[in-house]
Design a protein around this nucleic acid. Structure first.
Length: 261
DNA sequence: ACTAACCTGGTC
DNA sequence: GACCAGGTTAGT
């Protein structure tokens, strides 16, 4: 369930579990993970101490004491779980890190799209990412300039990790609703005021997500303001009805009444 | 800018 | 059985 808030909280949990530990053994349980973490690479993790865990966008980096980095991306369904010594592992475990305190940290992923790669250098990964959405150095003016000339719809542009790192389908959708901007508008056609509103809106949505650790959905219901609310009344109380459209193969929800170009 | 692909599971 | 899924990339 990973977008930036979820990944940030996953990193904090993972850091608490393994930051001062060493990896005793590593196992891959799915062929998709074995493609990058070969038996030889898994064996090379044995005995490595973990220095720290960091995040950029939705990318996670486990820094090892030999300067290598385990680069993990949750994609659609990845998550970390901690397993007590001797306890049963949860379902859908794709990677197990056995720790020197007898516990295990496992990468769970029902859909098996998550990736785990050993890197000598994180620079090539970072080079592909734009600024963090909440980077205070990113001003509305700078954001507006980044959108200049882009003919792609603003909703699709927001999902481009080279533009902003960490914004996913839910927060792009929610952010545009906060900003009252039509998701179909060409990114380059936004006024400075609209660009400012979109940046503020995305940050507001991410802030909401951070406060709930990304856990918007509880049981059958959720607390999204537009996402997954097709046919429901707009929460701006303007009498509009939320519509679902598809952009770039992804669902977008918006209120035709208040989200104007 | 859309489609398929990577994968599996849940829901109508 | 069909369609949906909070991501990303490669190839039209």
């Amino acid at each position: 369930m990973p977008e930036l808030p979820e990944v940030e909280h996953a990193v904090r949990r993972l850091r608490g579990w393994i930051a001062t530990r060493a990896i005793v053994r590593a196992e891959a349980h799915h062929k998709a993970i074995r493609r990058t973490l070969t038996p030889r690479r898994l064996a090379s993790l044995q005995g490595r101490a973990v220095r720290d865990v960091s995040r950029r966008g939705k990318h996670q980096f486990v820094h090892l004491d030999d300067a290598r980095v385990l680069h993990v991306h949750f994609r659609m369904n990845g998550d970390w779980a901690w397993v007590a010594p001797g306890a049963d592992a949860p379902r859908h475990v794709r990677l197990t890190l056995h720790l020197d305190d007898g516990a295990r940290v496992v990468l769970t992923d029902s859909r098996a799209l998550a990736t785990a790669v050993l890197l000598d250098d994180v620079a090539p990964v970072l080079a592909e990412l734009g600024p963090e959405a909440d980077d205070p150095a990113l001003t509305p003016r700078a954001f507006h300039a980044m959108l200049a000339g882009k003919r792609t719809p603003i909703k699709v542009a927001l999902l481009d990790q080279r533009l902003l790192a960490g914004v996913g389908n839910i927060y792009a959708t929610e952010g545009l609703w906060h900003a009252r901007v039509d998701p179909r508008v060409a990114a380059g056609a936004l006024t400075l005021a609209q660009a400012r509103a979109v940046l503020t809106g995305v940050r507001k949505a991410l802030g909401r997500g951070m406060r709930r650790e990304g856990r918007y959905a509880e049981g059958d219901s959720h607390e999204f303001l537009v996402y997954d609310r097709e046919g429901a009344p707009c929460r701006h109380r303007d009498g509009g009805t939320i519509r679902r459209i598809v952009q770039g193969g992804r669902s977008t929800y918006h209120c035709p009444r208040c989200q104007r170009r």
